[in-house]
Amino acid sequence: MDEGSANTGKLPQVAILFSQFAAYHVDRVEAAARRLAGRAEVLAVEYATTSATYAWEPAEGIEHARHVTLFPGKSYDEVGHLARYRAAMKAVRDAEMVCIGVPYSERDIIALSWRLAAAGKRVVMMTESKFDDFPRSLPREQAKARLLSSYRAAIVGGLRQREYLRFLGFGDKPVLPGYDSVGLDRISAQGAGEAVRWEDRDFLFVGRFVEKKNLSVLLAGYARYRELAGSAARRLVLAGDGELAGALKEQAGEGVVFTGFLRAEEVSRRLARALALCLVSTEEQWGLVVNEAAAFGVPAIVSTAVGSRDALVRSGVTGHVVEPQSAEGIAHAMLALSKDKADWQRYSQATTARAHMGDTERFADAVEALFDPDSKGAERAVQFWEDMAGT
């Protein structure tokens, strides 16, 4: 707490800013607010109710933080940069620490971060970007590093995100893990139900049908898996929708099921019944569905591009890591997880034991650590880095 807060008797304010709240954003701000209760007020700010990119339902269940929607009933994409900048600056002007979870490349966010820093606020970047997301240009990265110098700390997903920020000049600034997390209790409750026989479990993909999800290669890998598994082959369920739906349905062969877009509760129920989650993207900053699968002890087959593998996937232990363009590798990973019940149970138990690394309590640890560097949260955040780096 700074001297001004102590003199007025008011709790210091920590603002957490997102473009739009989904359920897992609510999980994070609520976890942070519960952790800082009595020490700070958490201000949960979203710019708008909807967006053109994500079909999330309006935020519900914010009880411990103060919730502010800057442009209620509007889409984030409909609001201009200047209007967003002005509204955000007004909303967070009394906060002592501002955690920004909106892409740092947005013009209004660049202006906001610099204005807040000039006003003496502690500006914290929240990001899941990593160097290997796509080809990088050195001059562009150098310019980016200068733009990001207004940030005093960062909350990131995992090891590769940390290394990328170090490359961008955060070497002497606090960089803490826990950004990419979900409320495991909420996910588990949504998927609670009847027991599922191992024989009835399917492979499952959840997400948008877009190019970077690499679904054409996943289908090719699944077709090869069916050749290897023969009559014992499991189904592959593709839950979602998108621009590639037609082409994927044409490519799909026997055993592939399309569910269409599913609500969050339906996704959880599907995950609870899955044999393994399949996420073999060519570009994937994190992949929160891996966290959700872990809530049910469901192993994951992920590509090397998937950021969440840093924390949650250990090949041969909690799932398998494959090359995104290797249909053969995907097929053999599927075979390894489907051929023996006892082996699968070991994968599942190991996944359950590691699931806590994807829970929003890790986000609360990071926020608490930045608010109070001598807290237990700070100790746990350091331990999280060690756990990720270990086996």
Rank of each mutant, 00 (worst) to 15 (best):
E3C: 10
S5C: 13
A6I: 15
A6D: 11
T8W: 06
I16T: 12
L17Y: 15
F18I: 12
Q20K: 14
A22P: 00
A23D: 12
A23R: 12
Y24S: 05
A31K: 04
R35G: 10
A37M: 13
A37S: 14
T49N: 07
A59R: 02
E60P: 02
H67W: 10
T69A: 09
S75K: 10
V79Q: 08
R86G: 00
A87R: 09
A88L: 11
D94A: 10
M97N: 01
I100P: 00
V102M: 04
E106M: 07
A111W: 09
S113D: 00
R115V: 03
R115N: 04
K121N: 01
P135G: 07
S137W: 08
L138D: 08
A143P: 06
R146H: 08
L147F: 11
L148A: 01
Y151M: 04
Y151A: 01
A153T: 03
R162D: 05
V175N: 00
R186G: 06
A189D: 11
G191A: 07
W198V: 05
D200F: 00
D202F: 01
D202E: 13
R208C: 02
R208V: 08
F209Q: 05
E227Q: 15
L228I: 09
G230H: 03
D241E: 15
L244E: 14
G246Y: 13
L248H: 12
K249S: 14
A252T: 14
G255S: 14
G260S: 12
L262E: 00
A264I: 12
E265H: 08
L275F: 01
C278T: 15
L279G: 00
L279I: 03
V280S: 09
S281L: 05
W286Q: 10
W286H: 10
L288Q: 02
V290P: 00
E292I: 00
A294G: 11
A295N: 04
T304A: 12
R309M: 12
V322K: 05
Q325K: 12
A327Y: 02
E328I: 08
G329W: 03
L335N: 07
S338P: 05
S338H: 09
Q345L: 13
T360D: 10
F371Y: 11
F371R: 06
F371W: 08
D372H: 07
S375C: 06
G377F: 10
A378P: 09
E379L: 13
R380F: 10
Q383C: 11
F384T: 14
T391G: 15
